[in-house]
Each structure stands twice: as C-alpha cells, then as structure tokens.
Design a protein around this nucleic acid. Sequence first.
DNA 1: CACTGTGGCCGTGGCC
DNA 2: GGCCACGGCCAC
Length: 765
Amino acid sequence: MKKMKVRGILIDINYKEGKIFLTIKNESGISTFYDDYYDYFYVEKNDENNAIINKLGMENVLDEVELEGKTFYKIKKVNEENEFYIKYAHNIPAWKKYLIENEITPMNLLELEVENDKILEVKDVGSYIPKLKVISFDIETYAPFIIPRVNKDPIIFASYASRDGEKGVITFKRGNRDFELLVKDEKELIEKLCEKLNEYEVIVGYNSSSFDIPYLMKRAEKLNGKFWLGNEEIEIKKLTTGKIVRTSGIIHFDLFYLIRLLANAQAIKTQRYSLEEIYEEIIGEKKMDLEEEKMCEIYDSDEKRGIYLDYSLSDAIATYKIFEKLYPLIVEICKISKIPLKELNNITSSQLVESLLFEYSYKYKFLIPNRPSEEELLERSEEKVIGAYVKIPEPGIYEKIAVLDFRSLYPSIIVAHNIDPKTLNCGHKECMKNVSPSGSYFCIKNRGIIPITVENLLSLRKKLKEELKKNDDPLIRARVAALKIILNSFYGMFRYVRSRWYSKECAESITTWGRKYILDIAKKAEEKGFKVIYMDTDSTFLTMGNKSKEDVIKFVEEVNKEIPEAMELEIENFYKRGVFVEKKTKEEIGARKKYALIDENGKIKIRGFELVRRDWCKFARDTQLEVLESILKEGSKEKAVEIVRNKIKQLREGKFKKEDLVIYTQLRKGKYKVTSPEFSAYEKARKRGIKIPIGSIIGYVITKNGKSISEKAEIAQFANDFDIEYYINNQVLPAVLKILGAFGYSEEDIKYYGKQTSLGEWENG
DNA sequence: CACTGTGGCCGTGGCC
DNA sequence: GGCCACGGCCAC
C-alpha cells in the first residue's frame, strides 16, 4: 500500500488496547486513523523496584525518564498491573498523553502521513476553526403533571435545527405548519429523529444527557423501536450531578454543562439554567415561551396545536443559536486545555487546570503528583485556611467614588512569589526572605510548575487583551474569556481536597499575602488623604472628596512601583454615587457584599442586593431596583418612598402577574433537618404524584392556606391564591427598608412614623 | 468522576 | 421576643 498525506481537523481522539484513534475532518468528510500506542505508568528506579521488574521481565519497560533529578522506568500498562509499585501518571487518560507527547491539539489542523489507516507521522500545523456539520435537537412530551413520567407520557414532538437552514418538527399529529414532518406514531417519530441526527457530525442538545436522550432511549425500548446514534452502543454514565451520554462515530454535545461551567466561573449570570433565560442572556433576545400548565391543552386543540409546534421548533433553534454563539469559546477551551469536544460534557474548571498542568509538567519535566488516598482526603478536609479580607462599610450614600482592583490578584501572587508545593520551604537560606505572612517561604532560584504555567497564561492573556483593544475579534475575545476562567481556578487547586497539587501552606500564603497587599493599599490611600469606604478581597473603594481623577491615577502609579512586577493595581472605574446599607440583623453595622454604584455614564452596578438573588420574587426585586435607581440617579428619597407605596397598592389591588410572585430555590438535597418553604412545596407536589428530581430549581408561591410560611408554600403551577400580606411584609418591605434607612430614616420612622404620611398606609392596609 | 476555594447575608423554623 | 442552626445564594 502506498503512503499518503492527509490534512484535517482533529475533532476526536480515543484509546483502546494499544491503539490511539484520531478522528479527522476535512473536505472529503470524516475519517479515522490509528496509531500504535501503549498506555504506561512510571515507577521510580530503585533497588526495591528493580527486584520486582527483573522478576517480571524487562519487556514491559519502555524507557527510562529523568524527572526532578530522579530516574523513572516507563512501564507498559498491561492487564495484570503490579500493585506493589508506587505508580505515577497511571490514571491520566492515554489519549491525553498522546496529545501532549505528540504536541497536537484538538480542533487544530493536523498533517498526517498514513499507510492504509495507520498513522506513520503526525504534525500539528496550527490553529484553525473547524466548520462542523452541527444539528441541534429537542423533544416535547405530553405531560399532564408537568414533570414527564417516562412510563406513561409519550414524546409528541422532536425538533431539530442546523446552520444550513435544515429545520423541522417531527410529529404524529398535524399542526398545519410547513416545517412539520408527519409520521405514523411515536415509535416512528423516534426513528425519524435518529435518521436525521445521524446525518450530522455533532448533535447538540440542552440538558440532553440528563433528559432527552435517556427519555428517547427508554421510550424506544418500551415501544419496541430503535434509538441509535453513531456506530456503537450509547453509554450513559450516572454521576451525582447528572448523566453523561457517550456516543461513538458521532459527537454528542450537551450545552448545559458548558453553561454550568460558565455560570460557576461567573462568565454568565442567570437566575435559572432554563433554555429561555440562557437564550436571553447569551443571545440578548426573548425566546418564545409557553405556559407549562397549558401545554397539554394546546396540544389537544386542533386549532392551537401549531403554536406548540412553533414553540418546539424555537427550542431547537435557540439551542443551535446558543451553540453557534459560544462555538469560538468552546473551540478555545478545547485548544487551551487540550480536551476534545466530547469531553466537554460534564467539564469542570478543576479539570481544565489539571489538564494544563499535565501538559506543562510534561514539557518542563516535572513529575505529575498522584491523586490523594482516602486517608489524605479525610486529613485534608479537616484543614482550614483563612481567606480574604472584607471591610465593613459605613452605611450611607457616597459621592465621587473610585474603585481600584488588583488585576488577577491570586494568580499574580502565585507568580510574584513563586508559590508551588515544590518550591515551598526549599531549604535555601537566600530564599527565606521570600516569606509569606503565614510563615512559609518559597524558592527564588528554581521556578515551580504552577508559577510557570500561570505566568505563561497571564502574559498570553495580557497580550491578547492588548490585541483586543486594536481589533475586537470574537475569537480573541473567546480566548481571553477562556483564559480568565482557567486562571481563576488555580488558587482553588491548592485547596481542593482531590487535587494532585493540594497544599494548605501554598493556599494560606496566597490569602495572607492577598490580605497584606490590600491592607497596604488602604494604609497608603489614607496617607494620601483618600477615605477607604469598602474593600473586598482585591478591590478598594475610595471616596475622592476634593481630589481629582489625576490624583487617583498618580496614586495607582505610585503603588505599582512598589509592588512586585507580576502584580498590578488597576482603576476599575469612577462612580458618581454609591449606596451602602445596614445589615438586617439587629447589630447596627454596615452590610458587606452589598452595594449599588452609578458611574459617570449613568451605568448602574449592583452587587449582593436582593434584586440579584433568585430566591426573592421578581415583584420585590423590581421594586428594589426602582428604588435604588431613583436614589442613584436623582438622589430623591421622596420618589423612592412613592415607588414603594405604589407597588404595595398594586399588590393590594391584584395588579400583578403570578410569575412575579414566584420564588425560586434549588432543592439541593433529598433530606433536610429543618422544614423550609421549598421543601414543603416539594413534598406537597410529591403527594400529588409528581416526581421532581433532586437538584431541580423549585418555583413556589406563598398562598393563604396554612399557618406557617412553609405550610402556605405551593409549587407555582398548583397555586390559586396568594398571601398578599406575606409579599408586602416579607418580600417588598424587607427589600427596601434598609435602603431607605441609608437616607437617615430609622426603621421605626419608616414603619411606624407618620401614620398621617403616605407611609402610614403600609401598616393600616 | 468531578465537588476550585473562603467570606458573608439572611429567611425560616424551632428552641428557650 | 431573643437566639441559633440550617441552608440557600451571592461576592470575589
């Protein structure tokens, strides 16, 4: 057979018994090539291990490797592994080792030299954004109890959408839409969907691992039909946090997990993870929505069914659009962390960091530490580390505020002080001056692998950010965002009990140094005549008084000359006004983590207030927002009071939407020590025969039926009336009282003072 | 297999 | 009525 060259994008990689399979995509489609490759592990070369190895025979020793001044045998992983060794690099996926050793990156363009299907040579020839054939899909079920019961509730629609304009809804009941695809029954619907999906390279769903695919599989089984994706059996892995669906020959991608990663990294902010809210957040448009309670009714009506079909299609289209918008970011995450697309299902930020550290450790010849044993896990979970400093603010309204921020505080401390488990207390005398306030010192002669990695990422990010200023390219923006997510997770790696790079001393050094640097800023600022009103971790809020912006700029420049090179203090923004409030507890002190600011362009920044929390009803949150806006924009307390009075009037007169009274709370556990409204609502629903999965976000309202709040709580769909007094006294008023209090009203003033004034109406009803 | 960390606010129920 | 544990969500 002749040798030939193949160019294509690496879209997937798998390992199986001595072979690596690379899936390559190019103009002629998708093809898979293999390379002989054995998974391996390292054992240290010493007398004890030599004896064992001699007994077993040398044929499994692939190589000898020098790491951190020691010699290791590289041993082929065979079925009968010897458990007497202390093994290293044994639980790292073989495909990852192959990628790192061959310096190839998922989603990059590869040049292969092959003979038949066998790879002779592989070369990465650079970055590329692959155009994949992608289709999104979604199913709808006929579920009179809202939460679908797989044994009883059929799938009525299956929708799909792709970039090439292919879109449709498969149904066995006519809805008179030109995009509908009529089939005989549910079984045919499932099979038709499979035919469609299997024409593509990537299938995208939203929560499809935990819902759509398992549901489709179970329904197909019940109906004696078929459900298939790709060329091998579909594997469903159950995790504590959900399910993962693994397919071969076709890539299944569940957007939900990426959304969860972005939400955890605070790259996106949404109240719930519903497709509607995510779509609005990411695409910036409202998505069509249908009231859940009415769905069956709409489906049963021949005239209205078309609307439900529209809705079903809009779900598939929304999923596709979100995928497309996030695609550059997805590709960048794959590339930076060397993780193929399908592995992004159920990705966490610690895995991204781990993956990067594998690569850098290999490159710089560091030994990758092993995972902790069960005993170590227990020991580690006992240890405590003090975190960041947060200043208690004086409640009130402030004018002319400058907010200063350390850029990537913890990563820059890691770099500045070379913080790493391997550089910790190195024993060199001259390194002892690099000592943290917690008493640990770090080597100044040899760099640790974590500082090396973080420094590279920081400088890359800085470079890209500068490029971004010149040219607002979505690809660069995605790369900057991906780097930020990863960088913010490094500190956590030192404290994460399952981490290979766990180190209490490193973590402690970072936080103590962090506290020192921020408190130094406070001291210096006060010396310069600024007043420090608030601080949290890496940010400082100053009131400028009669000082100018130039004074602030000069101050920041001076600070930057004094702190280590790797660190930088930045001006986050100037604000013309800001509000801090008292805590709601009895002690009359300012609340931390709660503030509202307005900048010179009128842009408002609000943190911590009830209005940013999903466990407060929208009605109360809207009221609070209006009050804060009026105070920040106009400084008018009279108007703020008027707003509250009107809102309460609206409640009393029934001028509200039911959904604005819904309180959302996640049911994180199946068993609780205390009664809570959300759990009580959940239990009532369960008694009705409705199964709500643990981990769901429950939307409940407070009704008139019952004594305690818990007794009155009902899942929103089942509630017919509302306890308006609860919404006034426990939602609207608590959300605004402390804000009005910042104007000098005492709480009594607001609640009881002036029955003659407009405020009196609150109490008298 | 998965859960990066600590600091902080506050409603609710249940105890006295 | 005061106090505290529980548990959720948010800031960074």
